[in-house]
């Protein structure tokens, strides 16, 4: 919490930093090795997932440990559409996300019967039910999963290099897009509502914010965009199984670590968290479960220093805010 007046408009530095990063990432296919490119794709997809979970948990206080429901559903719907509908892959992806958004209405209606910790557990149970249902579809490989047929894969682009390029730019769009959309949203009137709900629910209601509606809207929107990212993740993997698609470790625990370590309730937090997560992983790839223990210890350590995560620690040391959302009063 800052006690000093907010410093006003040092925008150029942060804008330049954002611009340089975007150019650097946009040019990755021209400077990065295949391995690096794959790692960046994964990181950008995780960034999109983390931004969505942060919007849900960090702003509207809906602690979901069941986002794997939407990653997996997005993946499975995408595979089903890609294999059976004849839709081009780049159309099948957003259609799978839209369908997932529609399914999020009744699922959200059920999950919203539950509050707090029960909501968290409820979302997990829902994801498990999704996993069990996915294993029932023999056309999609049942319990052992299925690979995307090679002719379907080739419809994206015939050469492997070109496919990597297309996939990279999808990941780039998802990662950067998630940051931009969250930023624009926080700058709109809805950003005021999200921040108000984050800071005090009773006060938010008392000034006319219909918090259940806002939360439901955010739940459905984040479900759809999580499913979009999920569809992409399994396009990149070319293979889907119920266990991988609905993995609570991969799509909830890791995402929660990322957001908590980086800084919940800010745009910068998930970005910082993803950078940390992938840096750590590149060093600790073969530590086995020690890697997870380190990650957990790091999350707890950061929380003990500052519950708002690394970003808050940096901010209190004078690092300027990258994504400005403050509306200044002009006297």
């Amino acid at each position: 919490m800052t006690t000093a007046p907010l410093t006003r408009r040092k925008a150029p530095v942060s804008l330049i930093a954002i611009f340089v990063t975007i150019v650097f990432l946009a040019a990755a296919p021209f400077w990065a090795s295949r391995g690096t490119l794959n790692m960046l794709m994964e990181a950008l997809a995780f960034l999109a997932l983390a931004q969505m979970w942060n919007l849900l948990a960090g702003y509207t206080g809906l602690i979901s440990v069941g986002q794997q429901a939407w990653v997996g559903l997005g993946g499975y719907l995408f595979f089903a559409l890609a294999m059976f509908s004849g839709l081009p892959l780049l159309i099948a992806l957003p259609v799978a996300a839209l369908l997932s958004g529609l399914i999020a209405f009744p699922i959200g209606w059920i999950a919203f019967r539950l509050q707090g910790a029960y909501f968290a557990i409820g979302t997990w149970v829902i994801a498990e039910v999704f996993r069990l249902i996915a294993a029932q579809f023999s056309a999609l490989g049942g319990g052992s999963g299925i690979s995307l047929p090679i002719d379907v894969v080739k419809s994206l682009a015939t050469s492997r290099g070109a496919r990597d390029m297309v996939m990279y730019y999808i990941a780039f769009g998802l990662g950067i897009g998630s940051v931009v959309i969250v930023w624009l949203m926080l700058r709109s009137k809805w950003g005021l509502a999200f921040t108000a709900i984050r800071d005090s629910e009773p006060a938010s209601e008392s000034i006319g914010i219909r918090i259940r509606r806002v939360k439901f809207m955010v739940y459905v929107a984040t479900a759809a965009s999580t499913a979009l990212t999920g569809g992409f993740i399994f396009l990149q993997k070319l293979r889907i199984t119920p266990d991988a698609a609905f993995s609570v470790n991969e799509w909830s625990a890791f995402i929660i670590f990322i957001v908590v370590i980086g800084g919940i309730g800010s745009i910068e937090g998930p970005i910082l968290g993803v950078i940390l997560f992938f840096t750590l992983r590149s060093f600790a790839a073969d530590w086995g479960s020690w890697y997870l223990i380190t990650l957990g210890a790091l999350a707890i350590g950061v929380m003990l220093v500052d519950r708002q995560g690394m970003w808050s620690i940096l901010k209190s040391r004078g690092v300027p805010v990258l994504f400005k959302t403050t509306r200044w009063f002009e006297p």
Binding site: M1, K189, L192, D199, S200, A203, I207, T326, R327, F329
Partner: peptide
């Protein structure tokens, strides 16, 4: 119950817009 993460002006703005 202030909205601690906003400025004073934004606290009022939120109230004026939604209420």
């Amino acid at each position: 119950h202030p909205f601690v993460g906003m400025t004073v002006y934004e606290n009022l703005l939120t109230a004026a817009i939604f209420g």
